[in-house]
Design a protein around this nucleic acid. Structure first.
Lengths: 343, 343
DNA sequence: ACTTGACATGCAACCGGTTGCATGAAAATC
DNA sequence: GATTTTCATGCAACCGGTTGCATGTCAAGT
């Protein structure tokens, strides 16, 4: 690391720049009352066109920009929403964040982003910190308990992604449908025993996927076991390989693609060929086809989820009413090269 | 897509929840002046311990939480900073965002996140939207012109990542060092003509990498040509393959790993073996070793960059002075399996 | 016992906007 | 021409905190 330090001071001119032109200055310059300036910006139709023009010209000349904070204080609306995710670095989330941002932007809203590091304590703290300065919040893949979520929902408008709580608007990516297809796919290939490599125990998606695997397996008459991987990450998956193999299963479905990627690496280390000796399926399809072999996975709808969640939230804020919406996005199996017939 | 709509209304009780307890109510309950309540929260040492306790008890009982907006208005500080990136979905940025968030969190600051979609217009718009409600801004890999950046820097504290403008604090990931190593590596393997697959023309990193390639190549006496890929993406890289091959070069260094990954795919389609027939090096090392063959790349310091940038910004806000800091992070070549001796 | 100082608290102005209501002038009605 | 309506604008209170200064109290200093 090279650090270049060339410290100079820029004392006055650049420091006081923080101070802005106020509405009073514009009012004086234009020879009107402050309220007229305010109206020129918020409801120009209330003023005569000439007055508006005069005010605007004065404002322009002075470089006036309405103070967002002051406006927020008197109107009670600041046009900000929060988005809290467990782990930005997990490729499942960036597209979601991006879509959310875009949707918020369409309505001139700004987004506060929070990263909880998969930690409920941190999540609680962030919700609290955000609460005072956002009009509403989107909680994606929350790791909080139902009670905490309900408590927060009682204090500010909330929309959930991948968490199914009655009475709170929510967007659910139904991985159940895709996972079912995955199990059927494996059964059709002749696998009689499979494992589900689970994710965070407080994750709704995890529960959903696990029970979908079990249900589909039992209805198809094949055996399914669960091996825990705790966190959705490459290393978690890699560390789980021993446990996976010791079950005697011939195929695995992992909580997500990252875990699957770790499993893939772990299997390679143990010289277990994929898909020759073992079949593997991921979830969320975040890796594109970049692994080798290209990973069979369950499609992801995180972009739509982000967009819809923010749109729902903004609707709520607009209408000042809470609708008990349950928006479900279905998923499907995407077959690539990590699954093959049992030999 | 399945949409479930079970619309119920929660009219009064949940809507008015927005209103909060004010400082006046606490003051009345505790039998003190509003100013004392304010002091109990901001400078308890000014009050007698008993008073503080009485106030706190009253506040607790009423569920009082200081209004962030009001406080911001009177103090002029709201404890928010903004972070603007060209593309959240580009894996280079999430670790940076995460580190920035973490660093901000340590000082109880919140982060506004903006995504410019690689579009200077959008970036300008976002800076404007943020300007009123953040104390300072971090611009990562800005696509704005020098003039626009300087203009913004004149209006609010700014820290740049990967943009080298005199007088504005900046954190630079010096890919030059790593790229130089990459060129040397290729030369040592016997390659006599290489191409640089460029990225966004307004990107500082791109200019830096391109000139590092040229300089290193000419000092080693090998030939270097540039092929443009416009955007840093998989598809850009893939589309550039025709142009790359037509130069007659035997190796390429791509602007980033995403582009390299696209090139890799494009080469495979044209049945050009890597590294047998052609050697390829990426930049930023964001893919880990997940491509096949595993991509040789130049290490990335984006996490540190995010952390340092925010830390610099917070220092600036604290000291209310601007130091002309130029913080440079060096990079190195990480050799994997997409480079081999010319045969 | 009288002054002096330290300290705890209250008063009131201020941050920069928004908004309900009053006012006065011009336009419409009879 | 007198009266009512319409419309543009100003006044002043309000949003919910913070903070400089004044005031009053009590203990220390002489």
């Amino acid at each position: 690391m090279v650090v270049g330090f060339k410290t100079g001071e820029f004392p006055e001119s650049m420091i006081k720049r923080a101070k802005g032109v106020t509405i009073s200055q514009v009012a004086e310059a234009a020879g009107v009352a402050r309220s007229s300036v305010s109206r020129a910006f918020t409801r120009p139709d209330m003023l005569s066109p000439e007055t508006v023009e005069r005010i605007m010209k004065a404002a322009e000349a002075l470089g006036y920009v309405p103070n967002h904070t002051a406006r927020a204080l008197s109107t009670g609306r600041h046009g900000n929403v929060g988005l809290i995710v467990p782990d930005i670095a997990n490729p499942f989330f960036p597209p979601m964040i991006r879509a959310a941002q875009l949707e918020a932007d369409r309505s001139d809203f700004c987004i506060f982003l929070g990263n909880t590091e998969e930690n409920p304590k941190q999540e609680d703290k962030l919700v609290g910190r955000f609460a005072g300065q956002v009009e509403g919040l989107v909680l994606a893949s929350s790791r909080l308990s139902d009670e905490r979520i309900r408590a927060h929902a009682g204090k500010l408008p909330l929309v959930l992604i991948n968490r199914d709580l009655d009475g709170i608007p929510r967007v659910l990516i139904d991985s159940g449908s895709g996972v079912r297809e995955a199990v059927e796919h494996l059964a059709r290939l002749g696998h009689r025993k499979i494992v589900y490599v689970s994710g965070p125990s407080t994750s709704w998606s995890n529960k959903q996927r696990r029970s979908a695997v079990r249900a589909a397996a039992s209805s198809l008459g094949i055996e399914a076991e669960t091996v825990p991987a705790v966190l959705p990450s490459y290393n978690s998956g890699r560390n789980a390989v021993g446990a996976i193999l010791s079950t005697g299963a011939t195929a695995a479905i992992a909580f997500d693609d990252l875990t699957a990627q770790g499993v893939l690496a772990g299997l390679a280390e143990k010289h277990v060929g994929v898909p020759g000796d073992f079949s593997l399926i991921g979830c969320d399809d975040v890796l594109g086809a970049v692994t080798y072999p290209a990973l069979t996975s369950v499609s992801n709808r995180s972009m739509e989820a982000g967009r819809v969640a923010v749109s729902l939230l903004l609707d709520m804020l607009q209408s000042r009413a809470i609708h008990d919406v349950r928006y479900v996005l279905e998923t499907h199996l995407v077959v690539r090269n990590t699954t093959a017939a049992l030999r």
